[in-house]
Amino acid sequence: MPDPKDEGVGIEIAWSLQGFSVKIRSRLMSALDHLGATKIAQWSLDGERKLAINRALTDTQLALIDASTKSLEEELRNNPDLAKRTLTALSRAERQSENIEVCLGLAIEDLKDHPSTSDQPADAPEALNPEFLNRWEQYASGATSEVVREKWARVLSSEIRAPGKFSSKILRIVDELDQNTAVLFQRFCECRMFSWAPAILLDFKDHELRELQEAELIIKPDLPAYYTFATMTADDEKEWWAIAGKTVGVMIRQNPSAPIINRDPMSMGPLRAIGGILNLGVYPLTNVGLVLATILPYDEELPFRRLANLISREAEGAAKFVRLDEYGFFIEEHVAQDQDETLDASSGKTNSGT
């Protein structure tokens, strides 16, 4: 008989769930319940990452196994081929169970390392959709390599943080992505700003972009798509073009402008200024691509800094990488703290002082 403390769905964890919000904890528990991981007996996050999630069998499961064994015992004894197939099926089931358990462990680790920072809406569900969990289990059961296991772990942890993101279609596309396309997409997302990546930062061949398009991850329009910069005026009355993310931004000098900026009115180049307006050529992500981008590690600073450096390469000072303070002001990194000069990203006006 199973230990009484293992009846139903219980959890024993060597680490605390205290750092999780109530709804994150509730969704995680619903996933463990649905997937049968009723006891986490050990958890270690050392350098070698020892993961262990052991299933505690219910009375019903034990009874089914016992009944099946008795009914098949005689037939297996007299049918070696059936016995061999049965052992193969059991071995496969054991491997699938192990794959799922490791994916679960990695998902929990990801939730611990990257807790949700966004506020949960009041109507956010407290349990994950069973249909999502059924499909996730199907895909995770075949995850034999560490790379694939980590992929499905991030899918689950992302769905726990913000349920409803991964439809059946998106899960199918995740499953069908081959390793080469996945690497290309990761390279693309390293240049991502918002829901697009600047063409000027992408060192991609045309066939590589087509591969991402055919995988339904990016949009490669017949005519270039453009992002339009805002304009701002500093205290010295110099005008700048500006783009701001959540925490960082880029200022681009209007006059004299960098050589990389094309001022030809007929230009279809990746960085053009027409009528005083600066346009940046971009490749947008599809809805599927945007969802998948959220499960990849993302450094917002990297593409903004790359853009500023690229524009300034042949004209020092033509672009500046800046940070945003809590009020949305631009803060130039090179300015001394006792002479801080901040720029309002929304109004385009300069404010001096701390």
Rank of each mutant, 00 (worst) to 15 (best):
P4I: 15
K5R: 13
D6Q: 04
G10E: 06
G10S: 12
G10Q: 11
I11T: 11
I13S: 06
L17E: 12
G19K: 05
S21G: 13
S21H: 07
V22H: 15
S30N: 00
A41Y: 09
Q42N: 06
E48G: 14
R49P: 08
I53H: 00
A56Q: 14
T58E: 05
Q61N: 03
L64T: 02
T69W: 15
K70N: 05
K70S: 03
S71T: 13
R77Y: 13
N78P: 02
N78T: 12
A83C: 11
K84C: 14
R85F: 11
S91C: 11
A93L: 10
R95S: 15
Q96P: 14
Q96Y: 05
Q96C: 05
E98N: 15
E98V: 10
C103W: 01
C103D: 01
D110A: 14
L111G: 04
L111E: 12
H114R: 13
S116R: 08
S116H: 07
T117E: 03
S118M: 09
Q120G: 04
A122I: 13
D123Y: 02
P125Y: 03
E126A: 11
L133W: 04
L133M: 08
Y139E: 00
T144V: 08
V148D: 13
W152I: 08
R154E: 00
R161M: 14
S168T: 04
I170R: 02
L171Y: 05
I173L: 05
E176C: 01
D178V: 13
T181L: 02
L184P: 11
F188N: 08
F188L: 00
F188C: 02
E190A: 12
C191A: 09
C191W: 02
M193F: 07
M193K: 04
M193C: 07
F194M: 05
F194C: 07
W196H: 10
A197D: 00
P198R: 07
I200P: 05
L202K: 01
D203G: 06
K205R: 10
L209C: 05
E216H: 10
K220D: 07
Y226L: 10
T228C: 08
M232Y: 04
T233K: 14
A234D: 14
D236Y: 11
E237A: 01
E237K: 13
E239T: 15
W241E: 03
G245Q: 02
T247M: 03
R253S: 01
N255T: 13
S257L: 10
I261S: 06
N262V: 00
R263H: 14
P265Q: 07
S267Q: 01
M268D: 13
I274D: 12
G276Y: 12
N279E: 09
L292W: 03
A293M: 05
Y298L: 12
D299K: 04
D299G: 05
P303S: 00
D325A: 10
F329L: 09
F329R: 15
F330V: 10
F330Y: 15
I331G: 06
E332S: 13
E333V: 04
A336I: 06
T342D: 11
L343Y: 15
G348A: 10
S352W: 08
